[in-house]
Each structure stands twice: as C-alpha cells, then as structure tokens.
Design a protein around this nucleic acid. Structure first.
Length: 652
RNA sequence: GCUGUUGUAGCUCAGUGGUAGAGCACUCCCUUGGUAAGGGAGAGGUCGUGAGUUCAAUCCUCACCAACAGCACCA
C-alpha cells in the first residue's frame, strides 16, 4: 500500500507502484486527459514516472505554472524538430523556457528569414498533429557525446562534454527526433496544443560569450489555450503603445538625432518633467542631510588612472587632448602628442577631490556629497536605446564618506529614502539585487567579505527581499541594484548603492579619527533615480504619458469656445499661473471638439473650457483626462483644487 | 561591438528601372462652433550617404551611416 497525499490535503491509497498517468486517471478520467506531468514531493517528473513510495503528489496541468513551463519547454523542442526537418544541416544548441515563452538557438550558415517563421509554425502544427510519443532514455555521457558527434551536432556534444565524466545523461526521443535534455517533458507532442506563436528572430552568442560565434535565436510564446495566447498578444500590443519614444513624440518631450547619437535634445515640455523631478529629489536629499556640489566635466586622465577606470573602462570614455587645435588648413587639427583629459564618466574622483580639500575630521562624517552630475559614457552603438541607455546622462549621484561603523546605518537610510521616493512615483514592483564580487576586481578579499556582509546585513535588518547576483558587482565593490521593468517587460537598473573601500585608498582620501590618527573613509556611491534620463523613460512608460499633475509638463489648457471668451481665458490662465500652475491657452479658431481631442491626445491632465457662459459667471468647465464628463466650477475653486493637486508629494 | 531587419514629406505609411503619392500635421480663406477630428485651397521630398551597373537608378549591386529587435556590454 502506498499513501499519496494530494494538494487539497486528502490522501489516496493505491495498491502498489503506479505511474503518473494511471494515478491521474484514478482520480478522474478528465484529469488523465489534461495531465501533462506529475509532481512528486515537489519535483516535477514525466507522466510516465512510477510512484513507488508514500509521497505528496500533484497532477500537473496546463493551468499551473509548472504545466505552462513544460508546455513552453516542449514547444521549444517541437520548434527545433520542425527547424531541423525544414532546414537539414541546422544544428541545435539550447532551448530554454523564459518569461511568457521560450527560445531555441540554432547554428546555421544561412540566416533565417521572417517568412521562415510561418513555415516553421506550420511544421510545428504538423508535428503536434502527428502526436509523436516523447520518451525518456538514459545514456552514458560518452555514448551521448559519440552519438551527437556522429550526427554532426557539435554544439550538443560540447554541452555534454562539460558534464563530469562517468555521469549519465537523459535523452528525449520525440518521434524520429532526439535531443539531450534534463526534462521533464509531455508524454507526446499532441499534448502541446496549438496555442503558440513564433515572435522574433535574433542573433545570440554561443554560451552567451561575445568571443564565440553567433547563433540564430528564434523566440516564441506558448500558452495553455488560444484565449491565453490572444490575451498575451493583445497585452504586448498595448505595451508597445506605452513605448516612451513613441509617447515622447506625441507629447513633444524630447528627440534624438544622428548628429548627437545617444544624447537627448530635451524639448520644453520634457524639460519641465525633468525640472519637476530634479527639484523634488533636491528637496528630498536636502532633507536627508546631503550637501550639493558641482564638479568639472573635463578632468586630467590621471584621476581615471588612479581610480582604476582607465584600465577597465577607457574604451568607453570620451578622451580629449589638452591642446589648442591647429588652425592651419593643411596641418592636422590635433598633434596627437598632447596630454589627455577625459570627459567624466562618473563623479566619484571629483567628489574625492572636494573631500580632500582641507583636513577632515571624524566629526565631519558621514559626509553626504551630492551632485546632479552630467556624465558621458561611450556606450556601444547597439546598446543605445531611447532614454534608457544614453551616452550623456545625468545621475542624481552622491558619495557618502563615512566610517565602517556608519555603513549599515547609511545603507538603511538610503534604502528607506529610495523606497519613499519610488513610492511617491507609484512604483511598486521594485526588484532588489545584491551584486557580489566580480572576477576582475581591486581590493583584498577581506575588504570584499566585509563590504558584502555589510550590505546584506543592512537589507536583512530592513527585512527587504533581495536576490544575490554573484560576479556582478562593480570592480571596486559590491552593489545594491534597484530594478524596474519597462512597458514591454525589459528590466532596467535605476537606483544603486555601491560600497567602496578602494577608491579612498587609491585617491588618498583620509580623515583624522578620534585617536588623532589618519584613517581611510569608506565611500558609498549611491543614486536614487539612477540616470534622470532612464528614470524619466520609465516614468513615461509607467504612466503611459498620463503624468500625475505635479509631474505633468502642461498641467492645464484653457480652451475657448468662441473668441468672445478670449479675454476671460487670459484671466483664467493668469490666475492659474499665479498659483504656480503650468498652463497653456488655446484660443485658436477651432471647434471645442477639435481642441478637446487634441489636448486629450496630448495627455493634458486638465482641459479648462471657457465659453460665453463661463465668462459671464466667472466659472470654468473642467474636463479631466480620461473622463468623458465635465464639471462647471467657480474659477476660485478650480485654482485652489488644481494647485493642491499639483503640489509635489513631499510638500503635501 | 555582433547577428538580423529597416531607411520615401514634420509624423504614420503606399509606390515605381523613365527624377514620386495618401492621411494627419503645417500655411491661408470661409466658419464663432458647448466637450475626442467643420469645409475649402495651398505649400512641403536630391526617396539615409557614397560609389558602381544602365541610355536612364528612389528602385538593381557594393560599401558606409543611422534606427529598430535580440545578444554581448553597462564603472
């Protein structure tokens, strides 16, 4: 007798060993039909797995996350089979499940074309209709290597070669097709269904290393049923409408152009958002005990050599020779012999220079030095992306010089400040990562131990959830990263806190301690918004351009119905401006329908309509963005309520 | 930087081996209209750049540049 406990807590007795499918059938025939796999003691296994001991058992269907994952994994396999059937000679490599779908990387000399995706999809449907049985086999490692080498699957053979000698590997046979895979898998291709779609085609390096050859990656999405697939595709379409580059054009916020690639031309309306945000952060850090400074753009390259950036990041810096360019038409503009300066890619060495002016005492610590520092980084062309990845960026940067004892307190204060700021923006699904020592780094292992521990402790004390990211720290210290996703699900790092025991040493910063001796301060590099450019990009997508009043570039438009109300509209606008609101007037010779439409499309939060009636009664008709209705209110009330609503969250 | 795709009016996009078209936006005229596009007229393009093939190239070929997607990178 075997006792099997179900997720609902009930226990079923079965007579002897039973496989997953039979077990599902013993509960309900319909369940056997829907069963994709079986979860035994928390581990998902093939449906053919025999259960021979007491266990907690769950039948996995497409309605669960586990089931969807199997479905997507199988979809990748079916796609690989389809590709190899259609394009003989194509090698398979890896095909994992990702959020909402899967991909598979192929090696093939000729590139896949967009039209090929349809052909592959059609072939995939064919394979599903064939309902090929999928069976698991266990091979020895060496047997597997020999087999895949023989059939010309060099990448697969290489993958298996990295498995320790003597181990066994599992191979799944899917009809005629065969792939190395850990599994689990569906019992047959028919179970996959047809709620899948191949979405995009792209290059990807073999084993994620840019020194390796480039493979061709096909992305796809797969769901339990057609409705889910359709819902997902609709969601993606809607998300694309939130793209900050698109909304920025519609709202006239900024533009980018070839002649300054990666650097932003902020238009008046975009700059208003920037200003509202910068001034907000300035108030917040002021309150949190920071001092603001301003440091040079162009610095002698020796600072970057000392800081360690010159060696690792020189190729991403803009370097400028310190010489007078030649005015001789025939001579080269630059001699190539001059001393080099660099446009700063970060503010830290400059801040250390301020710290080093005069003698600092332990009484001066913690010293929180902030700068809305404009930095330039020569980012690779392929990395540039709207506001999210630019070459000229401004960070709400600060360096906290403190003692080791103060690290934890400062970290906690920073995280609290950051969360409060994000909260004011309405961001909720913040992901925190603790990035640990990379291979290439400076500083002793002891100082890294200390630094990593300090950050981890601070997070634990705050009770914050975070994930560890081994190997992803900065070269001078571990860092906390605060990530948010953009409209189409790409994750971006915004805020960060980096612990640094090294730079003060390298740039020789010191303070006099209580004991009268010289000590090294610790530096915390930190930014709440990260780059203002990126943060605004995320804000635009987050709000879909419909900013809360305090951030909206144009807070209200006064639109007239007839020219007889022009004078009154001027008065309304003047009163709103006097109350500190950003107001525009629309006195054009257009119908009110036209004006309402245009300002709605332009995402103006409040349209204030003035006609003859309003002018006579000293009222205004208010139509808020997103509403079909309007409300006539006295001018005084409108001014008061809009001014209140437009107050930044920290001043309320 | 790598792979692929794209590049035609300010924007969104048609189109052709014989020097280009629509809608919106823009300008002017008519219209003063009560909450998501009133009507009419006009102006606007070296078809990304350079070279090649051709009697003739926006279209074909090559190179370059840029944008987009993904990968790699992100102090």
């Amino acid at each position: 007798m075997i006792n099997l406990k179900l997720p609902d807590g009930s226990v079923r007795e079965v007579e002897g060993p039973i496989d997953g499918l039979a077990f599902a059938g013993s509960i309900a025939k319909s369940l056997a039909k829907k069963a994709l796999a079986i979860k035994i003691d928390g581990k998902v296994k093939d449906l053919s797995t025999v259960i021979d001991h007491d266990a907690i058992v769950e039948v996995v269907t497409a309605q669960t996350d586990d089931g969807l994952e199997i479905l997507r994994h199988d979809c990748a396999h079916v796609m690989a089979e389809a590709v190899q059937e259609l394009f003989p000679g194509t090698q398979v490599t890896i095909g994992p499940v990702i959020e909402n779908g899967f991909y598979y990387d192929f090696a093939r000399d000729e590139p896949f074309k967009a039209e090929d995706l349809e052909k592959i999809e059609a072939k995939m449907r064919e394979i599903v209709d064939r309902n090929e049985p999928i069976t698991r086999e266990v091979w020895s490692r060496d047997e597997a290597i020999a087999y895949f080498k023989k059939i010309g699957e060099d990448y697969k053979a290489e993958l298996i070669e990295s498995i320790p000698a003597g181990e066994e590997v599992s191979v799944y046979r899917q009809g005629e097709w065969l792939d190395l895979c850990r599994g689990p898998h569906l019992p047959s291709t028919g179970k996959l269904g047809k709620a899948f779609k191949l979405t995009k085609l792209a290059g990807a390096y073999w084993r994620g290393d840019s020194r390796n050859e480039m493979l061709q990656r096909i992305y796809g999405t797969a769901w339990a049923n057609d409705n889910d697939l359709k819902a997902y595709l609709t969601m993606v379409e809607e998300a694309e409408r939130r793209d900050h580059r698109k909304i920025a054009r519609e709202m006239d916020l900024f533009h980018l152009q070839e002649e300054a690639q990666g650097s932003v031309f902020w238009h008046p309306k975009g700059w208003r958002i920037w200003q509202a945000l910068e001034q907000y952060v300035r108030r917040r850090i002021d309150e949190a005990g920071y001092v603001e400074v301003r440091t040079p753009q162009l610095l002698d390259s020796k600072f970057w050599e000392q800081s360690g950036h010159w060696g690792k990041y020189r190729e991403n810096m803009f370097v400028v020779p310190d010489e007078v360019p030649s005015t001789d038409e025939d001579a080269p503009v630059l001699s190539g012999k001059a001393k080099l300066m660099a446009i700063k890619p970060m503010n830290c060495p400059a801040h250390v220079q301020i710290f080093k002016q005069g003698v600092k005492s332990y009484r001066d610590l913690p010293l929180r030095m902030a700068e809305f520092g404009c930095c330039h980084r020569n980012e690779p062309h392929g990395a540039l992306h709207g506001l999210m990845r630019v070459r000229q960026m401004t960070q709400d940067d600060a360096h906290i010089f403190c003692t080791e004892d103060q690290i934890k307190g400062e970290t906690e204060a920073f995280v609290t400040l950051l969360e409060s700021v994000y909260d004011d923006m309405g961001f909720t699904d913040l992901k925190v990562r603790l990035a640990l020592r990379p291979e290439q780094r400076v500083g002793s292992d002891e100082s890294w131990d200390k630094a990593e521990k300090a950050l981890e402790e601070a997070l634990n004390d705050l009770g914050r959830e975070f994930t560890l990211a081994p190997g992803e720290g900065a070269f001078y210290g571990p860092k906390l990263e605060f990530h948010l996703k953009d409209a189409i699900g790409r994750s971006w790092q915004l805020g960060t806190l980096q612990l640094d025991f090294n730079l003060p040493e390298r740039l020789d910063a010191s303070y006099i301690g209580e004991d009268g001796g010289k000590h090294r301060p610790v530096m915390l590099h930190r930014a709440v918004l990260g780059s203002l450019e990126r943060f605004i990009g995320i804000l635009i997508e987050h709000y879909e351009g419909k900013f809360p009043l305090w951030l909206a570039p144009v807070q209200a438009v006064v639109a007239t119905i007839t020219s007889e109300a022009d004078e009154y509209a001027e008065k309304v606008a003047a009163e709103l401006r006097a109350a500190g609101l950003r107001v525009e007037m629309d006195l054009r010779n257009e119908k009110i329908n036209y004006k309402v439409r245009e300002h709605s499309v332009g995402k103006v939060p409040a349209i204030l309509v003035a006609g003859k009636r309003e002018a006579e009664e000293n009222t205004i008709s208010v139509r808020r963005l997103g509403s079909q209705q309007q409300q006539t209110m006295s001018l005084a009330d409108v001014v008061k309520s809009l001014a209140e609503e437009a107050t930044p969250p920290d001043l309320r």
